[in-house]
Design a protein around this nucleic acid. Structure first.
Lengths: 102, 102
DNA sequence: TTGAAAAGTTACTTTTTGTAACCTAATGAA
DNA sequence: TTCATTAGGTTACAAAAAGTAACTTTTCAA
């Protein structure tokens, strides 16, 4: 990879948000905490990638994973404060898509 | 690919913006019209992908390509009205990255 | 004893990316 | 004349990421 004059934080942000499915997963979580299968059903993403993305987002402190030891087990994902802070950006994209696409 | 209840326009928006480099290229073009090599130097993206992305963005009416028949040839890329309309979203991401990353 | 549900994981194939070399045309230097 | 440079790409090939489907584990209910 080349060197760049680009702001490293924006660059990092785009490495996260610019990954396939990531922003749609966050959009989905804006609705409130959701279980793995709920997210999987709401989006055309496979379990493999959903699992991978949620792990990345958890590692970055954007999403929180909470396990409820019920039977059968229940796992809920929700946005952290850092994740909720992305709502403005996501809503802007949503609005743009309404104004300018098709 | 599975069926989904997801808004097809947001989905389409993320298919575009969620592609690697796309948003950084648009961010770069917010500075004003720029030549191919300028963009290539500003970002850690290769000529192959820059060319591919610019073509996609042009096809979507987000970026405009203008050729000046000088010697050597000059080609400038700029945002269309549709492209400029993304500024709000991009600035939100930029601000979030400043507030929350590292 | 068979089946179902939740939350993943594994194995394998297809697409995308990354990297580097190459192309064309014009100009200018040695 | 031959070589090098500039601009704006394209090609070929290897490496990484994504898509798909089958499989796993635990627990309970039929």
């Amino acid at each position: 990879m080349k060197e760049t004059k680009l702001c490293p934080r924006l660059s990092k942000a785009m490495e996260l948000l610019g990954k396939r499915w990531t922003t749609l997963i966050l959009y989905q979580l804006l609705e409130g905490p959701q279980r793995f299968n709920e997210i999987e059903s709401a989006l055309p993403v496979s379990g493999r990638l959903l699992s991978e993305r949620l792990k990345e987002l958890e590692k970055e402190g954007i999403v929180e994973r909470r396990v409820y030891s019920e039977i059968p087990i229940r796992v809920e994902y929700s946005l952290t404060e850092k994740g909720v802070a992305l709502e403005g950006a996501i809503r802007e994209i949503e609005q743009w898509s309404k104004d300018w696409l098709k």
